[in-house]
Design a protein around this nucleic acid. Structure first.
Length: 429
DNA sequence: CTTGACTGCCC
DNA sequence: ATTCTGC
DNA sequence: GCAGAATGGGCAGTCAAG
């Protein structure tokens, strides 16, 4: 066999195995098939089947609408709302059993008996089996409004009884169809899968909706749709090719979709950014062993003249930044440990405390009510403070003194300005 | 029985 | 989740 | 461009201590 021919065969075998593993993530079965029947038998013996979870398609972040146009060039694509919930892969098996799997292929069926009951009303009897891809989102049925991720996460996770009163209602936002009536759809282009999804399923208020989408491809239209998605309490957009390079074949490329969130956009400083004081650090793991690897950050409360911890940060730093910061803060250790004017809880106590000497600009996706941090305590909640979701370092702000850091009142204001807080009010209790 | 630390899984 | 880095 | 390895907040669930 020639060198080229050998490589080709090797690539083919690898793709067969990868595909089988995505569609039937069961190594024992795959190895067994390889031993007894060979790789060529994999498509027949280890293929997608309702009841068995499938590796979900993921998305790459993009920094703006222009990057989307560059990446997809002349391909036609669609934009969809990116809902802030939990990935839900919904299966119907031949025997009528339904299952729901998470993004990491965990069986979440016992978490969602109510959702499964409701979804049964959303397809007709000629639908014998399927796998659909959806986002499970906390939902206020009376107000017909999406609720925050933080609400969804308070749902019970195990042994939710069907008769139980479920405190957090969930609506599914379906966006893809991977299998229907004994036929895999993953090799079909997205426009076909989406059309079949819309044809065979019927949305019902409070149970099932289709992800809001828009097919136009101009910069202005996408930008407007992104703005609208934020107003409508979503995280941003998912961008997906419709015709070419539009299959759901994870083995080829697991991140074929793009995602666009407001906080990714560098240009113009869109998205929330904060100027925060570094007041402590933790030692790291693995390649960061022996280094200050995560830093405790605080905002400034002007009334109390104190620094209130708001979050940790350990990403967004280059190796050079990490090294420089280690050298710098080693010179600014607090001899007395925690300062009297540092407001923190026991649960967010760093390995070392620093003097308040440097301000970092931090980017985040959202602000949340926190059990662990005390930023703005008393301003939106009597005993809890505010923290940041997905914090990362942007840069050092040497032009700002520590007491010029973002104020706690500004933090509280930004918390309250979030669309979901505006619509639903501050959390109770 | 209650509390708090820890784990595993969501993002 | 986000980000950086080595391949 | 991708995979791997660092790192984030926060929840229910678990289990041992009090």
């Amino acid at each position: 066999m020639s060198e080229d021919k050998y490589r080709e065969e090797e690539d083919k075998t690898q793709l067969l195995i990868r595909t089988a593993h995505c569609e039937m993530p069961n190594l024992a079965k795959i190895v067994n098939c390889l031993i007894t029947d060979g790789a060529d038998a994999l498509p027949e013996k280890c293929h997608m089947l309702p009841g068995i979870p499938v590796e979900p398609m993921l998305a790459n972040p993009t920094k703006g609408v222009s990057e989307i146009l560059t990446r997809f060039e002349d391909l036609e694509f669609t934009s969809e709302y990116k809902y802030d919930g939990e990935r839900a892969q919904v299966h119907l098996m031949d025997n009528g059993t339904m299952r729901i799997y998470s993004r990491n292929l965990e069986n979440n069926t016992s978490k969602y008996p109510d959702v499964i009951d409701k979804i049964r009303q959303c397809f007709s009897p000629e639908v014998k089996n399927f796998i659909i891809d959806a986002e499970a989102v906390a939902y206020d049925i009376e107000a017909k409004r999406i609720l925050p991720f933080q609400v969804l996460s308070t749902r019970k996770r195990k042994n939710v009884e069907n008769g139980d009163e479920v405190k957090v209602q969930v609506q599914l936002f379906a966006f893809d169809l991977l299998y229907l009536n004994d036929k895999p759809y993953v090799t079909k282009p997205f426009h076909t899968r989406r059309a079949a999804l819309h044809k065979h399923f019927t949305p019902q208020e409070g149970s099932l909706a289709f992800a809001t989408s828009m097919d136009a491809n101009s910069v202005d239209e996408i930008q407007a749709f992104l703005d609208k998605s934020i107003e409508d309490s979503c995280e941003g957009l998912m961008i997906k090719t419709l015709y070419q390079d539009a299959t759901y074949e994870i083995a080829n490329r697991s991140k074929k979709w793009l995602k666009l969130k407001k906080d990714y956009i560098e240009d113009g400083g869109l998205g929330d950014s904060f100027d925060l004081v570094v007041i402590g650090a933790w030692y790291g793991q693995g390649k960061r062993t022996g280094w200050y690897a995560a830093y405790l950050l605080a905002c400034y409360n002007e009334d109390e003249e104190e620094y209130q911890a708001i979050c940790k940060v350990g990403t967004g730093m280059t190796n050079e930044f990490l090294k420089d910061s280690n050298e710098f803060f080693a010179k600014h250790l607090s001899e007395s440990g925690k300062k009297a004017y540092y407001r923190t809880t026991e649960s967010s106590k760093p390995d070392v405390w620093f003097e308040p000497v440097q301000v970092w600009e931090i980017k985040a996706a959202d602000l949340s009510i926190s059990p662990a941090y005390l930023a703005g305590v008393g301003e939106v909640h009597p005993t809890k403070g505010i923290s940041l979701r997905f914090p990362r370092v942007l840069r050092i702000r040497d032009d700002k003194k520590p007491d010029e850091a973002t104020s706690s009142s500004r933090i509280a204001e930004m918390y309250s300005a979030q669309p979901l807080v505006q619509q639903n009010g501050p959390p109770r209790r």
